[in-house]
Design a protein around this nucleic acid. Structure first.
Lengths: 205, 205
DNA sequence: GCATCGTCTGTCACTAAGTGACATCTAACA
DNA sequence: TGTTAGATGTCACTTAGTGACAGACGATGC
């Protein structure tokens, strides 16, 4: 593993602590010193890792989105989105890290209405995922990632997935609703299908 | 004009100064004191108006988007998006405040790649516009604004418009390309048409 | 017309977010 | 084994942002 990746792992670890503290104490009541102490490193290093306190939560929000984008990057051209996710989402969603980071993310998403700083971080995480999704769309559509239609398709899909994530998180955490993995997957698939502006959801080869 | 509106006007005025300073000096090199001095009020008041330095630029980014959303709110159900904007976009785009704030926004959008704090503010502004657009979509689709399909449609349209705004801004400021009002409108219309997931772009009554 | 009230603002002192400089440590490399 | 590059902690600092208080001003009621 390269040094860059090791640093990314370190940032993700700190981000997990930040997310837990933001969830337990609230954003304003959590200090940079709190985050540093929880993560076991100096406050200076926290500010080396993150450009702002709200940015501390971005990596853990981003990692779930990027893992999902990477999963979509392994989507065979011969499969529809339904076929592919029906087959792979269960194994993907059972992954330990995914569950742990997913819970952290779901908790953060549940409080966006009253924490603009966390919404800001979430929108930045979604934007990063959108950038990754451009590659997936470009590949399936056999077009350049710089193509405006590819960018638009990726942006629309990302927006749709963000909505579903927020809805499911609010339902689960705030309203106590139980949502099965299959149901969540079905809603994600439906959202991707509805939002996709290029014909990439069915087999393309 | 109510007090609330007067305060909003004050915040917008400060935001215009902030945007100009962020553009001229860069985000990091601009202090809260700088913004306060330029706006002619105390630093304390700047922090009463905004929750963070990056949030200072949100109002001026938001106002263009919200004005456009308000314009779409006046879109007759008997018109297509093309008909309506062909008729109303010129007068709308000639509005003095729109031009001034539009230029400020375009300049900010041109530097998003190297100013994550400004991108963060821009994404928050787009999110606010998305909330307004839900009403427009709900009205045209004769559905509730709480309907997930309405939310999804508004999110996809907002994402598409954001991309076009960013592309045009980067082209105009960074690449020196000239984009006419008619051309910008045509691109916005095309983006809205492509992204809309509900049948609202043509006459609905 | 004057008193009262609510809200906004500036001042002041302060906390917390975030930074620059320097020294130390450690892993990688020759 | 020595060198180098990069990460980290410490320290002192700047800047972002806050709480408390007093004054100003417009709205309201009598």
């Amino acid at each position: 593993m390269s040094d860059g990746s090791r640093l990314e792992d370190a940032r993700l670890d700190v981000s997990r602590h930040a997310a837990r503290l933001f969830w337990e104490k609230g954003f304003d009541a959590t200090s940079g010193d709190d985050i540093a102490a929880a993560a076991g490193l100096s406050t200076r290093t926290v500010w080396r890792y993150f450009r702002s306190k709200e940015a501390c939560v971005e990596p853990v929000l981003k990692v779930s989105e990027l893992r999902f984008a990477a999963l979509l990057g392994r989507w065979p051209k011969t499969d529809s989105i339904d076929e592919f996710l029906a087959r792979s989402m269960t194994a993907f969603a059972l992954d330990d890290a995914f569950i742990r980071d997913g819970i952290a993310a779901v908790r953060i998403l549940a409080v966006l209405d009253r924490e603009p700083a966390l919404r800001s971080a979430w929108l930045m995480a979604c934007h990063a995922a959108e950038m990754e999704l451009r590659g997936v769309v470009a590949d399936r559509a056999a077009r350049s990632a710089e193509d405006l239609e590819v960018k638009l398709c990726a942006a629309a899909i990302t927006a749709a997935m963000r909505l579903v994530d927020e809805e499911i998180s609010a339902a689960v955490i705030n309203d106590g609703v139980k949502v099965s993995s299959e149901e969540a997957t079905a809603r994600i698939v439906a959202a991707i299908r509805t939002a996709a502006t290029l014909p990439i959801c069915d087999a393309v080869a």
